[in-house]
């Protein structure tokens, strides 16, 4: 899987590359409008992360020219602009997703994986980890081929973890992903811990074969047992 990161901020670009490389993707970067156009013109990518505030030209122009040439690369816009209008403009121009800065590494991971799954893997393939098999489209979880009952939020949490296998998922990132943007005023995400406790219990009962471990009290990591 080949991913192009179009981002003018070197530090951020590096971090994204670092993180995506851990997931065994081949990652290339472009740091301005012309470099982006050149790379897109010469190579084929599975996914493009596109910052729309680029030096040398509007990132949306990159998007337009891609779509005009009939290329079907998956595109995730990463932007500091968070208004609905900006999002709608981006999505209307043919972007597949829109991620607002600042984002969490885990969120970016989840978005990339969800998109690649949706677009590339036409045959439905369940997300597998430990003894868990997750059908994302039907929102069902099986363990040893038996259906496990999870409520909506428990499913979302587990889904997020499975997109971030062996990676750090911070409480803040989890809260934003599962409970939405608006949760950001929550005292200290203690309620996240509460939900995780329930989920752990449920997974243990059915022998899920995975472990949700706490990382320095700031987040979680899912490992195979």
């Amino acid at each position: 899987m080949k991913i192009l990161v179009v981002e003018d901020e070197k530090d951020l670009s590096e971090l994204i590359v670092q993180s995506l490389s851990k997931e065994k993707y081949v990652v290339e970067t472009a740091c301005d409008f012309h470099a982006a156009m050149e790379k897109i013109g010469s190579y084929q990518y599975d996914c493009i992360l596109l910052d729309i505030g680029l030096p040398g030209g509007d990132g949306l122009e990159v998007l337009k020219s891609l779509r005009e040439e009939g290329k079907s690369e998956n595109i995730i816009i990463i932007s500091a602009k968070d208004s609905i209008e900006d999002k709608i403009t981006g999505l209307n121009l043919g972007a597949d997703d829109y991620l607002t800065k600042p984002f969490h590494i885990a969120e970016l991971n989840a978005r990339v994986k969800a998109l690649l799954r949706r677009k590339k893997l036409e045959s439905r393939q369940n997300l597998e980890f430990g003894n868990i098999s997750m059908d994302i489209d039907d929102r069902q979880v099986f363990i040893h081929n038996e259906k496990v009952d999870l409520n909506r939020k428990e499913f979302d949490i587990l889904n997020y973890f499975l997109f971030n296998k062996n990676r750090l998922v911070s409480k803040m990132s989890l809260a934003e992903h599962v409970w939405g943007d608006n949760i950001d005023q929550a005292d200290n995400f203690d309620f996240v811990y509460y939900q995780i406790k329930n989920l752990r219990k449920k997974l243990k009962e059915v022998d899920a074969g995975i472990e949700i471990e706490s990382v320095y009290g700031t987040g979680y990591r899912v490992r195979e047992q």
Partner: peptide, 24 residues
């Protein structure tokens, strides 16, 4: 306003992501 958002959000993104990777 858009620029201010951009200018502040990007460094914030960098710091958060750097620290996340460090902890990871």
């Amino acid at each position: 306003i858009g620029n201010a958002a951009h200018e502040l959000q990007t460094p914030l993104a960098i710091v958060i992501n750097k620290l996340e990777l460090l902890i990871e």
